[in-house]
């Protein structure tokens, strides 16, 4: 316990906590996407509803849900503390500061991109988590809820934008986590870059494809769904 506290109170320890929780959230993204891909099954939502039911009732998943919430809170709490500490480390700003000459934009706006992801999460949970458990008097299945939500082009645009921003968060974040863990040398750089591209490019594209898929369905069926 003493070691853990000493660890967390140091700046490098905090940064490691951000990296660890960040990668944990990445693993959650993969699981979430895996289930979401059943939306494309073309079976009217049968398989998707089955998995959704499993996720909502399985006790092990329920426990993991708590871990996930803690992971999110720890990630956000720690990164925000670090941000304030980092800002206070330069009380007087430069009159001229050319950050673009030495660093990538994605590495300098992680708090902003992260905050957008957070706002998205609130809306997302309101629609699907809250929407499926409470206020679902009509008794829609999970698939029907998804279909109804994504029939709205404004909502779809919000989704797609959020995933572009998440991709940008991970453009920096994924490889950054490995630097934080000390796994950055020429031997692994290429491999990490490759896996990183899955996270900042492929995963967000697949997530963003879901609203587009349902929007197309919405118009193909003349807006019935």
């Amino acid at each position: 316990m003493g070691t853990l506290l000493q660890f967390y109170t140091s700046s490098v320890g905090k940064k490691l906590a951000v990296g660890l929780t960040g990668l944990f959230l990445c693993s959650f993204l993969v699981v979430h996407l895996g289930i979401n891909l059943f939306l494309f099954a073309g079976d009217g939502g049968e398989s998707y509803n089955m998995y959704a039911e499993f996720m909502a009732t399985n006790p092990l998943i329920k426990m993991l849900e708590v871990v996930l919430v803690v992971g999110f809170l720890l990630h956000i709490f720690t990164s925000v503390i670090l941000w304030f500490k980092n800002r206070s480390a330069r009380p007087e700003r430069y009159a001229m500061y050319d950050a673009a000459a030495s660093s990538e934009l994605s590495s300098r706006v992680t708090l902003l991109t992260g905050s957008v992801v957070f706002m998205f999460l609130v809306i997302h949970l309101r629609t699907f988590w809250f929407g499926s458990r409470y206020g679902n008097e009509a008794g829609y299945t999970m698939y029907q809820l998804v279909m109804r939500a994504f029939g709205n082009p404004v909502y779809d645009l919000l989704y797609i934008t959020s995933f572009v921003i998440l991709g940008y968060h991970l453009r920096h974040g994924f490889q950054s986590a490995f630097q934080t863990f000390g796994i950055n040398n020429s031997r692994y750089t290429r491999l990490i870059e490759l896996i990183a591209a899955i996270f900042w490019l492929v995963v967000p594209i697949l997530f963003a494809a879901i609203p587009l898929y349902f929007l197309r369905m919405h118009y193909m069926t003349g807006g019935i769904v």
Partner: peptide, 18 residues
């Protein structure tokens, strides 16, 4: 050395590589 670095009021690394 890291403890002293924190004590001196320097910020922490966000891997911008500047």
């Amino acid at each position: 050395m890291l403890a002293q670095m924190d004590k001196e009021g320097f910020g922490s690394c966000t891997n911008t590589y500047s």
